[in-house]
Design a protein around this nucleic acid. Sequence first.
DNA 1: TTGACATGCAACCTTTCAGTTGCATATAAT
DNA 2: ATTATATGCAACTGAAAGGTTGCATGTCAA
Lengths: 101, 101
Amino acid sequence: MDQIFKALANQSRREVMDKIFARDGQTLSELCEIASFSRQAVSKHLQILEDAGLVVTHWSGREKLHYLNPAPVHEISERWLKKYARRQMTAISALKETLEK
Amino acid sequence: MDQIFKALANQSRREVMDKIFARDGQTLSELCEIASFSRQAVSKHLQILEDAGLVVTHWSGREKLHYLNPAPVHEISERWLKKYARRQMTAISALKETLEK
DNA sequence: TTGACATGCAACCTTTCAGTTGCATATAAT
DNA sequence: ATTATATGCAACTGAAAGGTTGCATGTCAA
């Protein structure tokens, strides 16, 4: 869980995820195209995403293909965010009242 | 957005949030009770949460009261996670098929 | 079989992060 | 008035994060 949050905490990694989201099965080289930094840096980011279970890989010859795994995102959404987001409706007005006391 | 993700990326901060979640309006001292580290550390964490908009504060005399603001969590859920979580249903079986090719 | 391409591994550097300690300030209680 | 309580601010430290460079390895193509 901590691993997933940490993996998502970096802008570059979220961009990489967005690029995979756009088209599943891209190689490392393809994913490097958008990046403003080196292949090794992208590779490290992908490793972190993979360790967190957010990305799944598959070798095809000398190419490493990258696929998104939405399960961890879904899990965080279910187990953690929902708890807080549920307060969304009533919280703001209640908060205002409290603060005005 | 980046600020919110970064704020959530730390276990201690999520624990602090959980404690506020349990009862809104706790003081800094109260929030320190659960923590395994110094008041200053907790204070720093709260500042980061506050900067990210996740926590709202209110002074009452010499005491600083802390309230949860679920809006940013909700926003992340809506604007970012939903996009990925939506794939949840079909993704796994599709992924398996792809990988078996 | 030689050369080009796709990737991995490891050492290194700089910046950020999480936490500490020490001191200052403001409010409450005696 | 004095003391205790609640908090803030700033400097410091060790560890982790994000990135780089250089070299090694495995696979495809000519």
